[in-house]
Amino acid sequence: MELTKILMYKAIVEKDTSFEGVFFTAVKTTGIFCRPSCTARKPKIENVEFFETTKECVLKGYRPCKICDPLKKLHETPSEIQEILQELRDNPAFKFKDYDIRQRGIDPNKIRRWFLKNHGITFQAYQRMFKINSAFKRIQDGDRVTNTAYEMGYESLSGFGESFKNIFGVSPIKGKQQSVIDLKRIETPLGTMVACASSQGLCLLEFTDRRMLETELKSISRLLNATIIQGHNPFFEQLEMELDEYFEGRRTEFSVPLHTPGTAFQNKVWTSLRAISYGSTKSYKAQAESIKNPESVRAVANANGMNRIAILIPCHRVIGSDGRLTGYGGGVWRKKYLLELEQKYRNEITPRTS
Rank of each mutant, 00 (worst) to 15 (best):
M1I: 07
M1P: 05
I6D: 08
M8Q: 15
K10I: 04
I12V: 14
D16L: 09
E20Y: 06
V22I: 14
V22A: 00
F23Y: 05
T30P: 01
T30S: 14
S37I: 05
A40Q: 03
A40W: 02
K44T: 04
I45M: 13
E49R: 08
F51K: 13
K55N: 04
K55A: 12
Y62G: 04
P70H: 04
L74V: 14
H75S: 10
L85W: 06
R89D: 08
N91K: 12
K97Q: 09
G105R: 07
D107K: 09
P108N: 07
R112C: 00
F115M: 14
T122A: 13
T122E: 08
Q127D: 09
Q127W: 02
S134A: 15
A135M: 08
I139W: 06
D141N: 12
D141V: 02
G142W: 09
T148P: 08
Y154G: 09
E155V: 13
L157R: 14
S158F: 08
S163H: 10
F164T: 02
N166Y: 05
I167E: 15
G169A: 07
V170A: 09
P172Q: 05
I173Y: 11
K176R: 15
Q177M: 13
Q178F: 06
Q178D: 06
P189Q: 11
L190V: 06
G191V: 05
V194C: 02
A195I: 07
A197G: 01
Q200K: 15
Q200E: 10
E206T: 10
D209V: 03
L213S: 02
T215N: 07
E216V: 15
A226W: 08
I228D: 00
I228Y: 01
I229P: 14
I229G: 11
I229Q: 13
Q230H: 15
H232N: 13
F236R: 10
F236G: 04
L239M: 11
D244N: 13
E248D: 14
T252V: 03
E253M: 06
V256S: 00
L258H: 02
T260Y: 11
T263H: 03
W270G: 08
A275E: 14
I276G: 05
G279N: 02
S280P: 00
S280H: 10
T281Y: 01
A286H: 02
Q287K: 06
S290I: 03
I291S: 04
N293W: 08
P294V: 08
S296A: 13
V297Y: 00
R298C: 04
R298L: 11
R298E: 12
R308S: 09
I309W: 10
I311D: 05
L312Y: 01
C315S: 12
H316F: 15
V318T: 15
S321M: 06
D322F: 02
R324W: 03
V332N: 01
I349A: 07
P351D: 06
T353G: 08
